[in-house]
Design a binder for these strands. Structure first.
Length: 127
DNA sequence: GGGCTGACCTACT
DNA sequence: CAGTAGGCCAGCC
């Protein structure tokens, strides 16, 4: 399960397409009220350096897949759409609707991030 | 092949 | 904390 695909790129487009499937699967596994960063998704999908490719993968997702794309944010805990875009507003609204808290436009990754989710499970901390 | 663009990331000022 | 710089690589001219 450990990734360590130290390869910088995909040898064939088929590899990329398969990796895209992994990305969708990882994103679908993010629990409500939590988020992952693009880099983490890339790593969990098996390509640690492909953070920039995660967005491409999500844009490719068919609508009927109902991917929880809004649960992926950048490494600063911020939404990666321009603050005045409809995409930004929609993502923020969806996240807040499931309990994610924004502080000055930023999400506390210790609380809502992957590590936060683990801590919550391990220590049974109140959310 | 060359050049430019990203829903990115890290490291460093 | 805000900027910058370099690295990254598939897709689209």
């Amino acid at each position: 399960m450990t990734d360590q695909q130290e390869k910088g790129s995909f040898t064939t487009t088929g590899d990329f397409d398969r990796w895209v499937q992994n990305v969708w699967q990882v994103v679908e596994g993010i629990p409500r009220g939590h988020v992952l960063t693009y880099g983490e998704v890339a790593r969990l999908a098996g390509m640690s350096r492909a953070a920039r490719r995660v967005s491409q993968a999500m844009r490719r997702a068919p609508r009927d897949r109902k991917l929880p794309w809004h649960r992926v944010v950048n490494a600063q805990g911020r939404i990666s759409f321009p603050a005045d875009s409809s995409g930004y507003r929609q993502q923020k609204e969806r996240l807040e609707r499931e309990g994610v808290v924004f502080i000055k436009g930023k999400i506390d990754l210790e609380r809502h991030g992957y590590k936060g989710a683990l801590d919550h499970l391990l220590w049974n901390e109140p959310l």
